Computed example of a mutant assay.
Amino acid sequence: MDSETLERVREVVRSIPPGQTLSYGEVAELAGIRSARLVGRILAEDGHDLPWHRVLRSDGRSAPHIAAEQAARLRAEGILMVDGRLPREHRRR
């Protein structure tokens, strides 16, 4: 992955306002790349300083290994997960 792609993804994630979320696919689309998985990889490797918790799977779920922390961070911003999922009415698509 090139540094330009990395920075585009980081900028999209950085721009997600508190209290809002995007899916990995939406971040990829906004960053001009095709791979939602690449977004996940970038956040896992270089996203510690970003609001990574505002990025969810397309079905509104968290990845299992970060679910508890992600839900807590989202709750602090006023977003409540229901049964481990962001309610549909809070998802963009």
Rank of each mutant, 00 (worst) to 15 (best):
E26M: 10
G78H: 10
G32W: 12
L86P: 03
R91L: 14
Q20I: 00
V27M: 08
P87G: 03
V9N: 05
T21E: 00
E69T: 09
D49Y: 13
I33N: 09
R91S: 03
R34G: 11
R91N: 01
T5R: 14
G84H: 04
G32E: 12
A71S: 13
D2S: 11
H53A: 03
G25D: 12
V55N: 05
L38C: 05
V55Y: 06
P17I: 00
L6S: 05
L22C: 00
T5H: 08
A71D: 03
R14S: 08
R88Q: 13
T21Q: 06
Q70R: 15
V39H: 11
R57C: 02
P17L: 03
I33Q: 09
Y24M: 09
L86V: 11
R88F: 05
D59M: 07
L80V: 05
G40M: 02
E45R: 15
R34H: 13
A68L: 11
L56A: 12
G47M: 02
L43F: 05
W52H: 08
G40E: 05
P17T: 08
V27N: 10
A31M: 10
L50P: 04
H65I: 05
E89R: 15
G47Q: 10
D49K: 15
E89K: 15
H48Q: 14
R37W: 11
S62N: 04
S62R: 12
D2N: 15
R93W: 09
A28R: 07
S3I: 09
E89I: 10
A71V: 01
P18G: 02
A36Q: 10
H65F: 09
S58H: 13
H48F: 06
L56I: 13
G60H: 11
D59R: 10
I79H: 05
S15M: 03
V13M: 09
P87Y: 12
G25F: 04
G47E: 01
S23D: 04
S3D: 10
M1R: 10
T5N: 11
A44K: 14
G40Y: 06
I79N: 07
W52V: 05
G32H: 11
D59I: 04
Q70Y: 04
P51S: 01
E7C: 00
